[in-house]
Design a binder for these strands. Sequence first.
DNA 1: GCGGGTGTGATAGGAAATTAACAAAAAAGA
DNA 2: TCTTTTTTGTTAATTTCCTATCACACCCGC
Lengths: 254, 254
Amino acid sequence: MPNQRNTARPAGKKEARMRQLHQAVAQAKSLHVREAAELLDVSEMTVRRDIRENEDILQFLGGHIVLADDGSHRAPYDLADAADRKRPAKQAACAACAPLLRPQQTVFLDCGTTVAHLVDLIPTDMDLTVICYALNIADMAVRRPNIRLVMLGGIYDGPTASFYPVHEDATLEAFAINCAFMSAAGVAPQLGATCTTFREAAVKRAAMARAQTSVLVVDRSKFGQVAAAAFAPLKNFARIATEDGLAPPETLFG
Amino acid sequence: MPNQRNTARPAGKKEARMRQLHQAVAQAKSLHVREAAELLDVSEMTVRRDIRENEDILQFLGGHIVLADDGSHRAPYDLADAADRKRPAKQAACAACAPLLRPQQTVFLDCGTTVAHLVDLIPTDMDLTVICYALNIADMAVRRPNIRLVMLGGIYDGPTASFYPVHEDATLEAFAINCAFMSAAGVAPQLGATCTTFREAAVKRAAMARAQTSVLVVDRSKFGQVAAAAFAPLKNFARIATEDGLAPPETLFG
DNA sequence: GCGGGTGTGATAGGAAATTAACAAAAAAGA
DNA sequence: TCTTTTTTGTTAATTTCCTATCACACCCGC
């Protein structure tokens, strides 16, 4: 299986085209096939083929190319990441922890594409307060009239589509969080849950500190991975949700 | 002028349909004509006609209905408001104050659809720090790699698509604003610039307090109007930008 | 009840987009 | 170098969308 490369990326013309296309579409919000073809200097047919092979990244909408899936991943520009992302697994993990949602509760939703799927699983008649700091999450939550949305502001970071506080942020202190749904770039037995940047870790820790319960939502491909910034030992999570369902952290890693 | 009703609204079948359609599209982000037709229980042809008459609200994109103008006004759900909005005037007002932008500056962009057009007028090679608290502004600014975006967080308010702080917000205090581009619901000689809610006024005042210069960006239809919350006398603005260009506040209202 | 107007539905023509199939070109491997 | 495989371009056929036109139903004023 030659598609098992998650680190080095030996170019590949297709991938380069998709990357450029994705950036152009993200910027313009929609691009006509014809324009895309001459931008990439290939035939219209090739553009169609490229997009069909990455249907979960870009999509056709009547001759125009748009971001797929309500642009819920407008954030992860990198197609290497985009390609290895397993959306079904992430959705399944979210489905596993959706039953934890209770009406009138306040929940924290972490950044990334994983917990974003949780928004779709909130019943349309369940009143809920959602606290987030990622733009893709906010974008989705805003469409739900039954959700009271609270956003933590700060400086925008493109790769995570999130805002990071410039000082200490007092917003979180105004809320008591019933359940924090956290994502992670890596999950390992000793190092616990890790993410890529330290300021991201700081926000995560702040949220978990104010949460009654924390749930880690990851697909199993994150197991054994380690990223630069550790933000919580596994003991701090009441449950870990994966595509295989909810499990207490002790039962993982033997 | 029978379109001067901003409170009572005597139904109108078309208007009711558009309202429902707009809500459905805002929620689903895109809706096929066929689905829309059976949702409204009218013919496909009627849906097309409805949308063509309100092209600045909803738009066709190859058989699918999407929010017009990149969803930059995802906020103002109310079609009565949406109908009276004059986009060209607002764009012209923004064009008038675009020359005030300087590289490396920090600017504040107020909420609403008016100053949103200013984002489109920022040259793609001009590095700029933009501070905002409205989701539609953030949505647009994020697409520009040359913009450093700062967002003020808080509780989301649907009608203005903005976030209002839960406590005092320390974020603004970390920045020095070169120019604040403000919007208003009304502009009147004695009462100055007014907006609809008091918490909106509070944010506006806080921003202007930290700004070297403030510019009021409005179309002339706002002149003589008065809303509930006054946030600044006209003297506090260095310039007022309308579709007729930039003018000092003294020259208006004789 | 009788026109005039408006709003709505149905049909057909043309334009555009999507698909499929095949040929040419490029890349990879032996 | 030659073959094999992959990738790309072209063309044609099919489907889909868009527009225009006409016909019918409804509402109002007279």
